[in-house]
Design a protein around this nucleic acid. Structure first.
Length: 713
DNA sequence: GGGGGAACTTAGCAGCAATTAT
DNA sequence: ATAATTGCTGCTAAGTTCCCCC
């Protein structure tokens, strides 16, 4: 095991890295929150009626609406029976809703056919027109629903097979470089220099970014200049030796003017642009997969440009090269219409591998990694995998207790590697840390996860802020996002950590006898399919479920319910350390909202006095006066309306304030079992649209379709 | 085991589109 | 009608995991 020690020595170097983001806000609130949350994570919901679903039984059919004709030859229909034994109320609700919607649409269609509308006048929309538009929307939604591939009702393929038929148009290539017009020049040491096309294109990349702070960074400039010179002709290289003597001013100005001009396009121009884009989407954005048209996630080849990694990336500024068809591998069915390469070009390779999900791939020149063209999140291939992910996390729920007691025992092990593994697992479970693979130095920013933590990333406090045994974490995680947290731990963990720290330098590995592979191998023996990241999924989802239960009441009104949902979501985001830069206009928009609240409050108090007045009048003039009675009623409703508005806005303000530096989207998209949210939405009678936008609804169509109100993660 | 490549998920942000305020 | 604000989408970097080979 000595080999790690050598590695440790090498690593002493990169302690220079200081935490870059959020430095000023952090230590107070983020730390507190996370600890608070860390506690709540561990609480398990009391209800134990969780029933593990067997793998084979997973594909139960939920709705018994007729399937449209798209059903597949290979698929065997599964049981159509819907379990009617519970949740009657909400089920009929859902169905009734649907029928209503259908009826409405039919009416709308008839109306249209009847043609009792005068030809629409441009400026003002009549009520009918608005109504019509709404009907059209509903109709569209239904059509979409109808054409949706309900893959979750079909049998799975045999192991490893991802598709049986795949046909597509290949990737879309970015437009060629447009040379500079004759009146725009590049200057070197004050003299006009006409660059070769290749060098000019790269100069353009740099000129475009001149407004960005990072073009002033040393590493960025050096990397750029280095790569730029590689694109130059012999003579250019001889001439251009110093970036500081380069003047990109005219190119920069031209670019800015172009951007400005685009902003000021006329309606027609904008429309034309939009249509041109749509055409590309229509042509390249879809593929045919097992008889179903599926959307492709990223059908465009990444355009060339200057690489900007996140954080202190050693390769920032390097030239990301233009990809030619000669570098692209196509993957599709042998019997499909193989995509044609752009004229005058050929593909690197065409293969027919149905054990992978990608349609095309190329090797990128910065890291030498492979990039893929893959399907959209709403596709079968992605959806099925996602569903499986949550099923594994739910399986962890059934055995997490025994796994926890196991690592508690392991904390006492006399074997160092077992003990380190136990502590790492304790962190991964309690704090939802990422696994933390080791990274090659100099290839990317210096970031770490659990297993790659170094001595310099933690500080032990026997006592801190009234707590015993506190571990203070301070490191840069994925995307160079700072993780800062002060966590009280059990004394066994604390003692072990002190032991791990003995005789080590700040740059040494904290867990010198552990890496992700070893950890995952161990986890796999505890539960098939268990890896470090499953804990993140599990803890995120279980936290949401438990927080929702704790925070929401059926009697709350909708804004309150939504606030609670967001708060539950937020607890998860804090746990997973999903941060965002505070919006640039945050303070301003907060103040605006407050002003609106104040204004509305004033209106409210006015309405209240008016109501009192009216009541008094009604009393004195006798209650028989119907006019006065209605006046009182009217005033009452005004007061009520105002109160609701104020409440709604105040709730909104709280929500926004709490959300300042927290990104909710990531957990919603990647960590929270959608069935929890769908069940909540049914239970609370909050429409799913309020918590999931269109793309989320598409991505989680499987969950929305199959989940009943009684679902338990 | 461990090094390395392949495949796939997770992540934040820029810019644009949609919505709301003025 | 226009401006401000918010919400989403597209983009692509940065992770994790798996698997093969030595």
């Amino acid at each position: 095991m000595g080999e790690k020690d050598t590695k440790g020595e090498v690593k002493v170097k990169h302690k220079a890295n200081k935490l870059k983001r959020l430095n000023d806000h952090e230590s107070t609130d983020a730390g507190g929150d996370t600890i608070r949350n860390g506690k709540s994570v561990k609480r398990e919901p009391e209800d134990e009626d969780f029933t593990a679903k067997k793998k084979g039984l997973k594909r139960k059919r939920i709705k018994d609406e007729p399937q449209e004709g798209s059903s597949q030859s290979t698929a065997t229909p599964t049981s159509k029976k819907k379990s009617k034994d519970h949740g009657r109320g909400d089920e009929s609700d859902g169905e009734a809703e649907k029928k209503k919607a259908k009826k409405r649409t039919k009416k709308a269609v008839k109306k249209e056919e009847g043609g009792d509308h005068p030809v629409s006048k441009k400026p003002k929309k009549t009520k009918d027109e608005v109504d019509e538009a709404r009907q059209l929307k509903i109709k569209k939604k239904e059509d979409e629903e109808k054409s949706r591939w309900r893959w979750w009702e079909e049998e799975k393929y045999e192991d490893g097979v991802k598709w049986k038929f795949l046909e597509h148009k290949g990737p879309n290539f970015p437009p060629e470089y447009q040379p500079l017009p004759d009146n725009v020049h590049f200057y070197y040491a004050g003299k006009k220099v006409k660059l070769s096309l290749e060098a000019e294109e790269v100069a353009m990349f740099f000129a475009q970014m001149l407004d960005h702070e990072y073009t002033t960074k040393k590493a960025f400039r050096e990397n750029f200049f280095n790569d730029w010179r590689k694109e130059m002709s012999e003579s250019e290289r001889l001439l251009i030796q110093d970036l500081d003597k380069c003047n990109f001013g005219e190119i920069h100005a031209m670019h800015k003017a172009k951007v400005e001009a685009r902003k000021n396009f006329t309606k027609e121009e904008k429309l034309a642009l939009k249509e041109a884009n749509q055409k590309i989407v229509d042509e390249y954005g879809f593929c045919l997969l097992d008889k179903h048209k599926e959307r492709i996630g990223n059908f465009k080849i990444e355009p060339p440009g200057l690489f900007r990694g996140r954080g202190e990336h050693p390769k920032m500024g390097m030239l990301k090269k233009r990809i030619q068809p000669e570098g692209v591998i196509i993957n599709c069915s042998r019997e499909s219409h193989v995509p044609l390469p752009p004229a005058g070009h050929r593909w690197k390779e065409v293969r027919h591998d149905n054990t992978v999900t990608w349609l095309a791939s190329w090797t990128e020149n910065i890291q030498g990694s492979i990039k893929y063209i893959m399907l959209n999140a709403n596709s079968k291939l992605k959806g099925e995998k996602d569903w499986e992910k949550y099923e594994i996390a739910r399986k962890l729920k059934t055995c997490v207790d025994s796994i926890r007691s196991q690592y508690m025992l392991d904390l006492k092990s006399r074997e160092m590697r077992t003990r380190q593994r136990a502590v790492a697992l304790y962190f991964i479970d309690k704090l939802a840390l990422r696994a933390g693979n080791e990274k090659e130095e100099g290839e990317s920013a210096d970031t770490v996860g659990c297993c790659s933590l170094r001595v310099e990333h933690i500080t032990l406090h026997k006592q801190l802020e009234g707590n015993d045994c506190v571990v203070e974490f301070d490191f840069l995680g994925k995307d160079s996002i700072r993780y800062y947290n002060k966590v009280p731990v059990i004394s066994k963990v604390f003692k072990s950590l002190s032991l791990f720290l003995e005789n080590k330098q700040p740059g040494d590995d904290l867990f010198d006898r552990l890496n992700v592979t070893k950890l995952n191998k161990h986890l796999c023996t505890l539960m098939p399919g268990l890896t470090a990241k499953v804990f993140r999924t599990y803890n995120a989802s279980i936290t949401l479920q438990q927080q929702l239960k704790e925070l929401t009441n059926k009697s709350d009104n909708e804004p309150e319910k939504l606030l609670s949902y967001n708060r539950a979501n937020r607890a998860v985001a804090i746990l997973c350390n999903h941060q965002r830069a505070p919006p640039k206009t945050f303070d301003q928009s907060m103040a605006n909202l407050q002003a609106k609240i104040d204004a509305r409050k004033e209106q409210l108090s006015l309405a209240k006095t008016e109501l009192k007045q009216a009541k008094k009048e009604a009393k004195t003039k006798g209650s028989s006066d119907a006019k006065l009675q209605t006046l009182v009623e009217r005033k009452k409703s005004t007061v009520k309306r105002c109160e609701e508005m104020v409440l709604k806005m105040e709730v909104q303000a709280t929500d926004r304030e709490e959300n300042k530096q927290i990104a909710l989207g990531t957990s919603k998209l990647n960590y929270l079992d959608p069935r929890i949210s769908v069940a909540w939405s049914k239970n609370m009678e909050v429409p799913i649209e309020k918590i999931y936008n269109k793309s989320l609804r598409d991505k989680f169509a499987w969950a929305i379709d199959m989940t009943e109100a009684d679902f338990v993660f």
